[in-house]
Design a protein around this nucleic acid. Structure first.
Length: 511
RNA sequence: GGCCCGUUCGUCUAACGGUUAGGACGCCAGGUUUUCAUCCUGGUAAUAGGAGUUCGAUUCUCCUACGGGCUACCA
């Protein structure tokens, strides 16, 4: 087992954007493969044509790429087991389903969806029980087990729609060995005769994933917990095909839950609660609805990865921040927890802040550039660096870079009225003008010399620091925001500093 | 309803059967910053309940409660 070549797959269905739960599943597969020198495969599970959403596959690939996750084999990259889209593999499944029928492990069923739905409604009305197509009820339904062969053959030839169902054996214990949960034992009496092959000629997930995992030589199936209930069915299929001894190992990951209330995180929770659930923005092609993404909200991909890695997994140390390389090195399935985790948007922000602080000045400048262009400002590199130095620590998300620095590039147009009312006293205009005159005389203008001047001025004029500094800030920024007053003045420079005092006082006096 | 999985501070989590039950986020308080944040220091706060096994259970077993998942010709 040690020297076996690890092969894992991430197998989404292209029914829409991938939310962060799916991204985390992809991430854990990726980390597992990369750590053990294995192969990471993307397989598109598009056997349900009715749920196909245009653009979803590209979204999945691109958004994972943004997160830093890539594949060794995939639909676009190809690989030794191509094609990697199940819709392009339908002939393969046809062969395998025939084998199951020949072996007596599957059978044809002719009951229509409407008939079965009627039975379900009836069962519900009668005693709250759910109708299942299983070892009991199949005896009373229309299938190749109950109908004489000539009869069901005739039905098929007449073009009647049919499906193929697995014939679940009676009263057997099926054991699933799960790397995260240990042994899960289920009696076949509780399993139903799931459809393996639909009347549209395509397999269901259950058949397709088992056949493909076998053909693609998958060694480990790492997927969400929602698949645990059907894992015994999959084990049975491996057994019926005679592949049980080379069956992949299973690891069912706990789910990511809503931050409030209960239940698994769903696509609408994000915009309902004010945080993204998708890695990148998604526009629903049908409804035109827009779902926000981490990228567009100003999160860094490395932060998103760190958040997800740490949601359900921990290295057993007190390390919180990881590079992808560290994750690859430290990841192990053994240290994945068993229980679901509520997503914490506040901690997500904290992670992003940490990564923002780790960026170099050049990297931050690059992140700020789009906002500068958008506002038509073209500062020198030197000035930009100075600005970044004084605002960087306040940036939690990428847009904060601009939100906390715009006033370095543009003069304030408006002045916060509340702040004005609060700090502007009868003598303020006079003090500021006198102070400005002193500033004008300065030969060297920087944070130290200005600070010295402020101290000297306040003492001799008999005003408090705040009485001078707060109005100055309002004149520079238009509000009570921003970096330290001395840093602010230092970056702005003497000329601009005085200019803003002059024009600002003019504007304020007109109010 | 049935089947399966789970349960340590509000949240994410750590703890070979022996710890004052640790860390992180949040929150609260103080300090720095004469703004707002950041930052620093400190604090608050948990083993769901009940039986058992054991010299000793957060840790093992069972029951209960609660939570979650599944229960489609969807994945």
């Amino acid at each position: 087992m040690k020297d076996q070549h690890i092969r894992v797959r991430f197998a989404p269905s292209p029914t829409g954007p991938l939310h962060i739960g799916g991204v985390r599943t992809a991430l854990y597969n990726f980390l597992f493969a990369r750590k053990l020198g294995g192969t990471m495969i993307l397989r598109i599970e598009d056997t349900d044509q009715t749920r196909f959403v245009p653009g979803a596959e590209a979204y999945i690939v691109n958004s994972l790429a943004w997160c830093g996750l890539d594949f060794d084999e995939s639909p676009e990259k190809g690989g030794p087991h191509a094609p990697y889209r199940q819709s392009e593999r339908s002939d393969i499944y046809r062969d395998y389903i025939s084998r199951l029928i020949e072996n007596g492990h599957a059978y044809y069923a002719f009951d229509t969806e409407t008939e079965l739905n009627a039975l379900r409604d009836q069962a519900k009305a009668n005693g709250g029980r759910t109708f299942q197509y299983d070892q009991q009820t199949r005896k009373t339904l229309q299938n190749s087990l109950t109908l004489p062969e000539p009869e069901w053959r005739k039905l098929m030839e007449s073009g009647a729609p049919y499906v193929v169902r697995i014939k679940i054996p009676e009263n057997e214990q099926v054991v699933v060995h799960d790397l995260i949960r240990g042994e899960v034992v289920v009696n076949t009496a509780n399993l139903d005769d799931k459809v393996l092959f639909k009347s549209d000629g395509l397999p269901t997930y259950h058949l397709a994933n088992v056949v493909d995992d076998y053909l693609m030589k998958i060694t480990h199936v790492i997927r969400g917990e929602e698949w645990l209930p059907s894992a015994p069915l999959h084990v049975l299929l491996y057994r019926f095909f005679g592949w049980e001894d080379i069956m992949p190992k299973f690891a069912h990951l706990p789910l990511i839950l809503k931050p409030d209330g209960n239940g698994k995180l769903s696509k609408r929770d994000g915009d309902r609660l004010g945080f993204p659930v998708f890695p990148t923005e998604w526009k629903d092609p049908k409804t035109e609805e827009i779902y926000s993404g981490y990228r567009e909200s100003g999160y860094l991909p490395e932060a998103v990865i760190n958040i997800l890695a740490h949601l359900g997994w921990n290295p057993g140390t007190e390390q919180e921040l990881f590079t992808m390389a560290e994750l690859i090195q430290q990841f192990s399935l053994e240290r994945v927890g068993k229980h679901g985790s509520k997503f914490d948007p506040e901690k997500a922000k904290w992670f992003n802040h940490q990564y923002m602080q780790r960026k170099s000045e050049d990297e931050l400048a690059l992140l700020l550039k789009p906002y500068l262009m958008q506002h038509g400002v073209t500062p020198s590199e030197d000035f930009l660096t100075k600005v970044i130095r004084v605002v960087r620590e306040r940036a939690v998300l990428v847009p904060d870079l601009w939100n906390t620095s715009w006033f370095f590039f543009m003069r304030p147009e408006q002045y916060d009225q509340q702040v004005y009312q609060k700090i502007w006293q009868p003598g303020t205009t006079g003090w500021i003008s006198n102070f400005a005159k002193e500033v004008e005389k300065m030969d060297v203008f920087n944070k130290d010399t200005l600070h010295a001047l402020v101290q000297e001025f306040t003492t001799s004029a008999g005003v408090k620091m705040g009485q001078l500094m707060n109005p100055l800030r309002l004149l520079m920024v238009g509000s009570n925001q921003g970096p330290g007053m001395m840093d602010l003045a230092d970056v702005l420079g003497k000329e601009e500093f005085l200019e803003r005092i002059e024009t600002g006082i003019e504007k304020l006096n007109r109010l």
